[in-house]
Write a protein that binds this DNA or RNA. Sequence first.
DNA 1: CTATTTGATAATTCATGTTTATTGATTATT
DNA 2: AATAATCAATAAACATGAATTATCAAATAG
Lengths: 295, 295
Amino acid sequence: MNYQIELRHFVYFLAVADELHYRKAAEKLFISQPGLSTQIKQMEEILGTQLFVRDKKKVSLTPAGEFLKKEVEFILNHLDQTKKQVKLIGDGQLGEVRIGFLGSAMQNVVPNLLLGLKEKFPTVHTTLEELSNRAQINAILADRLDLGFVRLSRVPKGLDVKPVFEDTFSLVLPEDHPLDAKHFKNINQVADEDFILFSQDYSPMYYDTVLSICEDSGFVPNVSHKSVHAQTIFKLVENKLGIAIVPTTLQHGFQMKVKFIEMKKIKQRAVLSMVWKTDNRNPALQKCMDLLQKL
Amino acid sequence: MNYQIELRHFVYFLAVADELHYRKAAEKLFISQPGLSTQIKQMEEILGTQLFVRDKKKVSLTPAGEFLKKEVEFILNHLDQTKKQVKLIGDGQLGEVRIGFLGSAMQNVVPNLLLGLKEKFPTVHTTLEELSNRAQINAILADRLDLGFVRLSRVPKGLDVKPVFEDTFSLVLPEDHPLDAKHFKNINQVADEDFILFSQDYSPMYYDTVLSICEDSGFVPNVSHKSVHAQTIFKLVENKLGIAIVPTTLQHGFQMKVKFIEMKKIKQRAVLSMVWKTDNRNPALQKCMDLLQKL
DNA sequence: CTATTTGATAATTCATGTTTATTGATTATT
DNA sequence: AATAATCAATAAACATGAATTATCAAATAG
């Protein structure tokens, strides 16, 4: 009287509806015929409607049963798909990773990650957003982002960081600047020039690192301009408004009248790190991070 | 290990997913907290995926759980609607009745039935088909029709008949025929005329009845033409090719130069009956038949 | 530090799904 | 017509597993 329909009922019902024969249906289900009979009867009681007509040696569906059959087929089918998808999501084969990144990560790390994902986990979707260090951190804390690519050494509690790419620094000079790679020995050769840097606010780590490079050579740079876009910085250099120090990989993807001198000998490196929330259980994120280890 | 997901799991799962708190969810479900814990755990084992993260004093959904929640909400909702619809169909409130009828039933009985259905059971749909007596019987036997309106006294085994409308017979004469209603006393006043009747094959009962009317007045009619369409018969009468005897209600709906003389005094009646298969369990059919009793 | 709250675990109870055995009804066979 | 066979329904016995009670460990709040 107080019972509840269960999926078992549906499976039984479908068997009978298909066979139109209790004993055969029971055999197919590997249960006894009386058990099947009682369950169907119970089902009819719960629904308050007769589903089968047992009439003179033959079983047939009532219109209500006919209708229910279609619906049950749909529901069981939908359920089957759902179970499979849940498993896939749980295994990280299917899902979405929301990625934030600094512009400079687009030169190298992020494209490689996307290619790797496409190859190994083609059903994992990604959404990409170019954001500042700070914006990424906020987004990750607020669960609006799964993974960030930042240039930071320290992150708030609850987040984890891990370096994924180390880059040398390069000096950026106007194309016709007298200094060239062959004659470059030490950064103090350009100690008197004006410097154009990424703004401290945009990337504190970068800023500090560049200052420490200069400090190691015994001078304090004269910073004439600050910007948050590499393109702006290169443009300023092109127009001889100063020189710059940037991560080396930034030289790709721009067509400017500037030249790069890679400073391999200085010890500082531009470190790109990935950041994520420690307790983020997105299985697709795990797959991403596994992939990044191997790159 | 070998268990099967049941709807109970889904209901429990939704409760926890909504509350994100086992004890509160258990209270809402009127079961104990440990029972809920074990069922959710079992569910996770069956699906092979973790659905909740129980982490330091707070419960939250995994991406797989998040996905499952949406699907379960959909499934349970769909199921609810299905249960209601099955009940409605079983009660005959929702469904379809396939109706066959003789042209003459369209004057009166069928329109009334349709109006009644529309009023009392607006969700019961009907399909209509004008068919001969024989064609209706065959269609009902073959389960292509639920209900028929025929002029027959006897039907094959497995079918039931019940009269729904009794009609007097009328004499059909050309408009300028010397006989009129005022001077009509007995059918033998036109015993010498040619008669135009519905063909015996189309409606044996009608044919026999008309013959018996004449017989009662002591003559055998001279049948000059037979037809299956009232319109044809009236046209022939209009052109003075004979006179006819038809069920009285047929006079409506035609615009012809003929006059009708209703013969109330003769005992024979044109009986319209409904026919259906004895074991037809279409609940909507029952509603139809109930309605017809009251008309 | 103590008290409280959380979900998980263990043992027990109890509901109910399932089986075996049987019956009544119908159909096929001789 | 009598017998055998087939079908679904019913009754009683059984067993599976869901739910309860009692308890614990971990974490948080006062």
